[in-house]
Amino acid sequence: MSEHVARPVWRRPMLIAAVYAFVALAVGLAASPKSVMQGWLIAFVFVSSIPIGSLVLLLIHRLTGGRWGTAVESILVPATSMVPFLAIAFLPLAFGLSAPYRWAADASTLRPEVAHLYLNQPAFLLRSTVALTGWSVLAIAVVKGRCTELMAGLGLAFHAIVISLVAVDWVLSIDSKFSSSAFAAVIAIQQLLSALAFAAMAGPEPRQSGAIADLAGLIIATVLGTVYLGLMSFIVIWYGNLPDKAAWYLARAHGGWQWLLAAAVTIGALLPLCLLLNQSVRQSRRALRLVSSLILLGVFLHVAWLIAPAFGSGAMVAALIAMVALIGIGLGLFDRAVSGLSGGAHAK
């Protein structure tokens, strides 16, 4: 194999750490099941963003073509093949919806029509199942190379609809009084950002010169997109000044959570953008690896800032352990997928 995509050196320690993390989660499940489920939700929303973002990028590339896509294919394709496993990672949540979602435990917090027609457990599970199944079908088609242009176009339209539903379900419905129309777009762009950052971090040296700069340009665009939409939704709500919406931001601006956001913006957006302004950084593989690690850390902090303040610091601890578990297992599977796919390519 000429390209070193994943580093097998990491595999064993990561898997061992993941096993310990699962043991810790099992112990935690006995002690404080609520925090464990809440932490799992945070880790799931972050980790799922990489495979889903990779799938969307590959669907876009199927329609547009271009050098950028061929340069990162060696990472995005195995990452996309992780999408079906997301359904397994989602299962614990399906059995414990009442831990993170107050409406699932007590429907009287909602207006009766909303609870009856939209935000109830069967409907929530149906929407998540449709999304995860649809993404899995698209992912398998993309990985097997059977995705036609028509399928890619329809798949993107499907994604636009389901991401709008599940982003609100998974994250915003924790506080059912809050709504923000641009929220799903923030999540969708952030998924693209995570996938690009992951590809920049794990990717091999590209054969074509200039492909690294393309990747850096895409990362700049998605960072700006995420920050812009996040800031715009805040400004609209700030001008509107309605109690329920202000309460959501106020809960995230006190009790130390404001520092979480400050860290997320500094590590995930300000620092990477300032570094990427340098042409030498945009053209250097190693510098881009550093920038992408910062971005992934920032994205995790942002996801934690969106979700954890509704739960408290116990969820943050559980989220960190669940992150180790999911990333360890995920990288192990990713590694296998890389060698499986390149083995298939050799066989041809």
Partner: peptide
């Protein structure tokens, strides 16, 4: 001086 709005 509403700086968050003035940044855009």
């Amino acid at each position: 001086n509403s700086w968050p709005v003035f940044l855009l």
